[in-house]
């Protein structure tokens, strides 16, 4: 064969092949909704003003408190089924968006729902997700969307990285004193703030803690996704489990702003998230 012929043939093959991946596969897809329901033990979570002395919650040790802010980042969501079904939520970051990263904020009702699109039809029995923003979300540089620090992203600039979970409120025993920061911001008396951050894995220094955690939650059953079937998993995040788990004593633990101090809380994340139940069809979740 002459070279030119070979090249022409190759050109043909290559043009046909190289765009193939962009074509949608002839498969069936549906949606799956994750609903993050933040709770304090058995109670619904209601937010109070910072500094409010109306303590509507109590830990098992009798520490009275309320919450003024609660939230966390979730990313890298994955659904798996008993027959090898697999859905991985697309993660794609740039200066204009942070696809696949979700900031679940108690104060923003719409953030509690994470809608997963283009889930291959099939049955699913468990969900996996990461709590916090791992190295690959930090080391890409400045990102948009929920990771944009000027748009509410929780960015630590003293030790660059994102706060994975924030728990703030006021506690009867908190030793926090009033602080006027002089620039229009203040810290109210008896408030507390637990900011769980830290993403570096440094093997030769055990003090360097990575507080990003990945959880896999079983549904205890299977649900089906199809063009008609859009199931919903109701995930309960229990603040009380976090605070009880570390045996919180607000008189000494009221200002957690570094990876090492946040580690005990991160270690409780395994217990704090559970799938409460799943709905087969998601025609409006009853809240």
């Amino acid at each position: 064969m002459k070279i030119s012929k070979i090249l022409a043939l190759l050109a043909l093959i290559v043009t046909i092949m190289s765009c193939e991946n962009d074509e949608p596969q002839p498969e069936e897809f549906g949606t799956f909704q994750l609903y993050f329901d933040n709770k304090v033990g058995a109670s619904e979570l209601t937010l109070s003003e910072p500094g409010s002395t109306n303590y509507n919650y109590e830990t098992t040790n009798g520490e009275k408190f309320n919450l003024s802010r609660f939230g966390y980042y979730v990313s890298k969501i994955k659904l798996e089924g008993p027959n090898g079904e697999l859905y991985e939520d697309e993660v794609s970051v740039s200066a204009s968006e942070s696809k696949g990263y979700y900031q679940i904020l108690e104060s923003v009702a719409s953030s509690h729902n994470v809608m997963l699109e283009n889930v291959p039809a099939g049955s699913y029995s468990k969900v996996t997700f990461t709590i916090g923003v791992a190295e690959d979300g930090v080391q890409e540089g400045a990102l948009g969307g929920v990771l944009d620090p000027a748009k509410g992203a929780w960015f630590w600039n003293w030790n660059a990285g994102y706060i994975g979970m924030a728990i703030e409120g006021t506690a009867e025993n908190s030793a926090q004193q009033y602080v006027d920061w002089g620039n229009g911001t203040e810290t109210k008396e008896k408030t507390f703030a637990v900011h769980v951050g830290g993403w570096k894995d440094v093997t030769d220094n055990e003090n360097f803690v990575n507080n990003v955690r990945t959880r896999t939650l079983d549904f205890g059953t299977t649900v089906s996704v199809s063009e008609e079937l859009s199931p919903n998993a109701h995930v309960v995040t229990d603040v009380l489990k976090l605070l009880d788990g570390v045996n919180i004593d607000f008189s000494s633990t009221y200002s957690v702003h570094a990876p090492k101090a946040g580690k005990p809380f991160a270690d409780q994340l395994a217990n704090a998230f559970v799938v409460h139940h799943v709905h087969q069809s998601s025609n409006g979740h009853g809240h």
Binding site: V138, F155, N157, A160, K200
Partner: peptide
């Protein structure tokens, strides 16, 4: 070494 990416450096300077 507080900052691990050049993009984030100015946040410190500004804030």
């Amino acid at each position: 070494g507080a900052v691990t990416h050049l993009d984030f450096v100015p946040i410190n300077a500004i804030e």
